[in-house]
Design a binder for these strands. Structure first.
Lengths: 157, 157
DNA sequence: GTCTGCATACTCGGATAAGAGCTGTCCGAGTAGCTTAGG
DNA sequence: CCTAAGCTACTCGGACAGCTCTTATCCGAGTATGCAGAC
């Protein structure tokens, strides 16, 4: 899995904490986490294309959440970075076997593919149940002063 | 995910069907599925190293299951091909943030990492519950003549 | 007929290239805010 | 003092290389089989 997923999730949680008043630039995030700014910017662009963030150019520009944190799931972020394709790709190798029906869609018929998809389904269900709002709340509960530190390192005033 | 995973699972199911009397060579599997023989052989080697298959060189040689099909899970096969590492790799970027505790293990402390691991856990649990024996039984139940066709294309007599 | 030695063909196994995708970098288009000159 | 034009600096956004990993291929070591010859 891309390293960008980890970065993107952390940035989303941070944006949920800093709020909508100010935008946070990729450079500021990069400084906070010690990451390559241009590459991080590339990852955040993917989130903009996916409709998770909005971007503002120019001074005092940067990124904001495009919708409420409770409406952004971990799966949304992963799909935005990695694409919507399943990890397991059924190439329908059964089609080449003797006695196979060429007109059959083995992507849904093959029992191996079915088992793999079942596993990915529960995986995605778990990720879909976890939102940025949940993560933010869990952080606030466990480390009460973390939001203050986050705002201090990402916002200007 | 590697394409070899799909190949390997199918080969294991086939070996469960053909039984332990005969070994099946990589070339025979490759012919059955229309795959590059040498590369498929490489994947099956990984299964041998993982203790899932045993290999026999020479004429009438090939691969056999190293243990009963009910003792081989889908997760075993995937780990053998892809490695045991989790898909999501926590790089502990929180360690670079102001106010972080350098002595803390953020791989287990970070809530983002925790959520991702929780999702992978249910994924692996699902794959661990599915064995080669289950797949073989499901195939026999749904397509009763499939085992005969499989034996005909993989065994010599 | 039976046994033994040998040549043969077949198998896995590891070492060696080609390609794709992730990672990282650089520069241009556009905008907000500050500066400065004029009224 | 107030206004407005221009300039500067900062932002995203997309285009351009480097590198790792997957994919693919080739050749060598080793073994069971079948054959030929001797007993």
């Amino acid at each position: 899995m891309n390293a960008g997923v980890e970065w993107a999730v952390h940035c989303c949680v941070d944006l949920a904490i800093t709020g909508q008043d100010q935008a946070v630039s990729a450079a500021r995030f990069a400084a906070r986490y010690g990451l390559p700014a241009a590459y991080l910017n590339k990852q955040l662009q993917a989130l903009v294309r996916a409709g998770i963030l909005t971007s503002t150019p120019g001074p005092r520009g940067g990124f904001r959440l495009a919708r409420r944190p409770s409406k952004i799931t971990l799966l949304d972020v992963i799909v935005a970075i990695e694409g919507a394709d399943d990890a397991f790709q059924c190439t329908q190798i059964l089609k080449a076997t003797p006695g196979a029906d060429p007109s059959l869609d083995y992507q849904s018929y093959c029992l191996v593919s079915k088992a793999m998809r079942a596993a990915e389904l529960v995986y995605r269900r778990e990720l879909k149940a976890q939102t940025i709002a949940h993560l933010k709340a869990a952080v606030e509960r466990r480390t009460p002063n973390a939001p203050t530190l986050t705002r201090r390192s990402l916002t200007v005033d």
